[in-house]
Simulated scan of single mutants.
Amino acid sequence: MSERKAIFITGGGSGIGRAVAQKFAANGWFVGLADISASGMKETAALLPAGASSQHKLDVRDRAAWDQALAAFAKAAGGKIDAVFNNAGIPLGGALVDNKVEEIERCLDINLKGVLFGAQAAYPWLKASAPGSCLLNTASAAGIYGTPGASVYSATKFGVRAITESLDGEWAEDGIKVASLMPAFIDTPLLDHTANQGTNEDIRGRVQSAGLEITAVTEVAETAWAAVHGNQLHNRVGKTAHRLAFASRWMPGRLRKQVRSTLRPLGQ
């Protein structure tokens, strides 16, 4: 088992995490599934080849739990960790003035602090397996240009983008690659959640009514594979993410006007 490369994936019990686990396991990697949902991890593991994974219940907000989970995974993987995928995250939409304090704090804690804690905990393992090791963080198209009705979520994803850029510089001399995924709207169970506690409308319905595309989760998995094996810092997924990146760089005034005139906040 020690000859196999090993990747630790948070949010591995569903959605993007599950798809990335399937992609890496299919290519011979040993996969550590981390999630707060034991049933979700069990379902993901059932989709992977026999003996290709281990399961680790983890709340990414708990810094000490990170150390315990990574040590347990390294033991199961034969002593080393080649990649850590900081993927766990939750959505939050609606006007900022309508977001409840507990919603804001939970989103910040999971989406931002969880990534920082994961990076801290992952560093010694990735340094030991460098060069060629990788920290991959899930950012978002919402980290390219701020999304009306998702100010807190956008803030967390801009933060993940900043963490990625900062660590790309900090860890370069250690031979650790750092990269982000920037997906737009991906076909995962998160789209079936309501944007916040004050609305009954799910995110999927809002996205479809706005005429925006929903990208297959397998495309994210392919991009994650390319990110771990390539040298691209930010890896966009979906037409919306590519359009936002282009417009924010080359047509910022036009993008601002379009956003202010056409986008109804999620959750309203």
Rank of each mutant, 00 (worst) to 15 (best):
S2M: 14
S2G: 09
E3D: 13
R4N: 07
K5V: 06
G11H: 04
G11E: 05
G12H: 12
S14R: 14
I16C: 15
R18N: 05
Q22L: 14
A25V: 02
A26I: 01
L33K: 04
A34K: 09
I36H: 06
S37A: 09
G40T: 03
M41P: 02
L47N: 11
L48F: 09
S54R: 12
H56T: 10
R63Q: 15
R63N: 13
A64M: 05
A64F: 06
A65Y: 07
W66D: 05
Q68S: 14
L70T: 04
A72L: 13
A77R: 10
G79W: 12
G79N: 02
K80E: 07
N87V: 08
A88Q: 07
G89A: 15
G89C: 08
A95H: 06
V97H: 08
K100V: 06
E102L: 12
R106E: 09
D109T: 10
I110S: 01
N111I: 04
K113T: 14
L116S: 11
A119I: 06
A119S: 11
A122R: 00
K127V: 10
A128N: 11
S129A: 15
G132K: 05
S140Q: 03
A142D: 09
A142Y: 06
A142T: 08
T147C: 10
P148I: 10
P148R: 08
P148H: 07
G149K: 13
S151P: 00
Y153M: 01
Y153T: 01
S154Q: 02
S154A: 05
F158Y: 14
I163N: 01
K177H: 11
V178S: 03
S180V: 07
M182H: 13
I186E: 04
D187C: 06
T188P: 01
L190K: 05
L191H: 00
N196R: 10
Q197I: 14
E201I: 15
D202Y: 01
R206M: 09
S209R: 14
A210G: 08
A210M: 10
V217E: 02
T218I: 12
W225H: 12
A227T: 08
V228G: 03
N231K: 15
H234D: 02
R236D: 09
G238R: 01
R243G: 09
A245I: 11
L255H: 12
R256G: 15
K257T: 13
Q258G: 11
L263E: 07
